[in-house]
Design a protein around this nucleic acid. Structure first.
Length: 295
DNA sequence: ACGTTGGTCGTGATTACGTCA
DNA sequence: TTTGACGTAATCACGACCAAC
């Protein structure tokens, strides 16, 4: 399950820069013109629509959460660290060790070893060379098959009940504690990646909103300039957008009565509009503004 | 071309702490 | 109130990979 690194290599090859977070996120900005709303908060803390996220580079994408044929985990060694204290947890689940940690380095050798069947934790009868009585922990590497099963299980349920945990451990020839730890780490790292993806998405949204705000400010300034120029202002078309009643915040059914001749109807500044506004209870007001049922 | 080395990253494991029945 | 199980967050430790030399 090293596809993050694989993906990073791809990105580097494509000339893209790493995000500096040590993450191989393939984040592309959503369409600026039509920013889709942020993903709704998932019912589950870990929205695991990861397969689909992977396949679309125009979406915030988690790089990999699934083992793939390219995953090198199948090529790597596999140690099992077992202390006497840990063994008490096994309760009948034997996990004989087969370690190939000594073959680190030459990749071809590792590949050959993997093809010869190394790196598996099947009870192949490898002798315990983990510590020879020491309790120093060694880092194990789950086999591709084990990772695949764990991934599949995780896709179904990100948490395990004790019975399922023991069954899974037995199936994978692991200790229940190992399965438990794997799920803990998986949840944590999935959440972390999702957080980073969300963060990136929100950053994009913020940029878009900033840009829109800048544009609207510019528009406001232009309108103010027009307003200061009476000649231009008189020739303006009546507003075609909806008008909201400032007192009751209802939307006007029709544009304000500004169709009167300019010579007789002074420009209805916002101050005039508010000052001369009819009470909401006034029938004329009710004709002008849609009366939605209040909250 | 090949070996060494330091940095980076993925990931298994541990520890501390919070929550809840 | 106490306790044990279980969760998350932070961190450590190890091994693989890669680029620079």
């Amino acid at each position: 399950m090293c596809l993050w690194r694989e993906r990073k290599r791809e990105i580097v090859k494509m000339g893209e820069k790493d995000d500096g977070l040590g993450l191989s996120l393939s984040l592309k900005c959503p369409e600026p013109e039509n920013p889709s709303p942020p993903p709704p908060p998932p019912p589950h803390p870990f929205p695991l629509n990861l397969h689909s996220m992977f396949q679309h580079h125009n979406k915030p994408s988690l790089i990999a959460f699934q083992p793939s044929p390219e995953a090198r985990s199948n090529l790597r060694g596999f140690d099992i660290n077992r202390s006497a204290a840990e063994c008490e947890e096994e309760a009948g689940v034997s996990s004989p060790n087969s370690t190939i940690s000594s073959v680190s380095g030459k990749r071809n050798e590792i590949e050959e070893a993997a093809e010869r069947g190394w790196g598996s934790t099947d009870g192949g009868g490898g002798e315990d060379d983990d510590d020879g009585g020491e309790t120093a922990r060694k880092k194990l590497r789950l086999s591709r098959e084990q990772s695949a099963v764990l991934e599949e299980t995780f896709k179904e349920h990100s948490t395990l009940n004790p019975k399922h945990k023991v069954a899974l451990a037995k199936q994978l020839n692991l200790r229940p504690r190992q399965v438990e730890v794997w799920f803990q780490n998986r949840r944590a790292r999935t959440k972390l990646k999702q957080t980073e993806v969300d963060c990136e998405y929100l950053k994009r949204c913020c940029e878009n909103l900033t840009e829109e705000n800048r544009r609207l400010q510019k528009e406001v300034n232009e309108l103010r300039t027009l307003k200061l120029s009476p000649q231009s202002y008189m020739n303006m078309n009546p507003p075609t957008t909806l008008t909201m009643c400032p007192s009751c915040e209802r939307v006007a059914v029709r544009p304000p009565p500004s169709s009167a001749p300019a010579s007789t109807a002074p420009p209805a500044t916002s101050a005039n509009s508010i000052a001369g506004h009819l009470k909401p209870s006034d029938p004329q007001h009710q004709r002008s503004y849609a009366h939605n049922p209040g909250p």
